[in-house]
């Protein structure tokens, strides 16, 4: 896997940037939560590119944000269950 550089990122479209960042985020998120890694990575990719880069550089920040994503997911699932109960 080629190293992620600023020049590589700026030469890519916003969509390609997210793809490149997602490829790097995913294995790290898998370490934190293997079961929900696809969804957590999806949530984290909604952040700005600069914030995602911070997450890639800081395992602590990544863990914090991943935990927040799990909380969001759980809230969303509760909401869906209550909607489906009607």
């Amino acid at each position: 896997q080629e190293p992620l550089t600023i020049s590589l990122l700026v030469s890519a479209s916003p969509h390609e940037q997210k793809q490149m960042l997602g490829v790097r985020l995913f294995p790290l998120v898998q370490i934190i939560d293997k079961k929900l890694a696809e969804k957590i990575t999806g949530i984290l990719l909604e952040f700005d590119t600069s914030e995602i880069i911070y997450m890639l550089e800081s395992p602590e920040l990544l863990r914090t944000m991943a935990n927040k994503a799990v909380t969001l997911l759980q809230g969303h699932q509760v909401q869906e269950v209550s909607m489906n109960s009607f």
Partner: peptide, 26 residues
């Protein structure tokens, strides 16, 4: 507001092109 939020969150799968938040309300 059109019920598409049920598709949230978009899932990232390695090797699959990222589609992001298409047609999903914030």
């Amino acid at each position: 507001s059109n019920g598409s939020s049920i598709n949230w969150p978009p899932e990232f799968h390695p090797g699959v092109p990222w589609k992001g938040l298409q047609n999903i309300d914030p």
